[in-house]
Design a protein around this nucleic acid. Structure first.
Lengths: 133, 133
DNA sequence: AGAAATTACGTCTTCCGTAAAAATA
DNA sequence: TATTTTTACGGAAGACGTAATTTCT
């Protein structure tokens, strides 16, 4: 499905964070059985979700070689990005929780590896004393 | 729900990208009706999803003042993070698609505003000619 | 009354787990 | 035949829309 119409044409990236977690598990294990066990779900459910992800991306992520499971180039790219995305989501969750408690937020230099910068300097320290109503 | 058990205790960040999009719409419009129209869904559905998001985060995101809708401090934080997360997801989608087509990927300096760096230098240029099997 | 958000309810899609099937060494 | 993944099927959870409800100006 596409984002639709008007000034708002979002590409509607259809990967769920849950699906991304599933994908990372399979990509790391390279074995649907072990990945399913690690995720505490049944194998068929995992297989379906991975296929659904591939369909949504319109891109093959694994090469199922009958006996072996290997990542495609797209799969390798997604593995890197998925890890970053999940980490970013978790970090966001922490920041939101912290903001709710009106605690000062300290952001330390951080950057996803997939952006592979040649050089990067980045830091910040934001102290906020509860200024909310 | 928590990630569960063993060496893998993921905090199970429960925000869906779809819910995040819904949230951004409301946060930008500060009006459930307009936001729902913009998202092409009904108002109640949107209201429920926002509440579900707040429940999942265990954090209030809006102050519903009957007549007005305002962001909480946590809401403001999430707005910034959500935009970055959605942008990152979209970028990841593009990179994955590009990788699938074995095109060289050019990453230009980019950094979410929410990390509010005092100073940041960051660039990279990765050329990859189809080396996949 | 009028406007804005939430709850109630019925429906439809999606997701999961168990069981069976396909495919390969 | 054993192992790994995928399809089939029935049940549970989630999400949406329409309609009714609450609350404040």
């Amino acid at each position: 499905m596409m984002g639709v119409i008007g000034p708002e044409v979002v590409s509607d990236v259809d990967f769920d964070l849950r699906r991304l977690r599933y994908f990372v598990a399979v990509a790391e294990e390279l074995h649907f059985g072990r990945a399913a066990a690690r995720l505490h779900i049944a194998q068929p459910a995992l297989s379906r979700q991975i296929r659904a992800l591939e369909d949504a991306l319109r891109t093959a992520l694994f090469v199922r070689d009958r006996r072996t499971t290997v990542l495609t180039a797209a799969g390798e790219q997604l593995l890197a990005d998925a890890r970053d995305l999940l980490a970013a989501a978790e970090a966001a969750h922490r920041r939101v929780t912290a903001a709710a408690e009106a605690k000062p937020v300290l952001t330390v230099g951080f950057m996803p590896a997939s952006w592979s910068p040649r050089r990067c300097e980045c830091w910040s320290a934001t102290g906020r004393t509860s200024a909310s109503g």
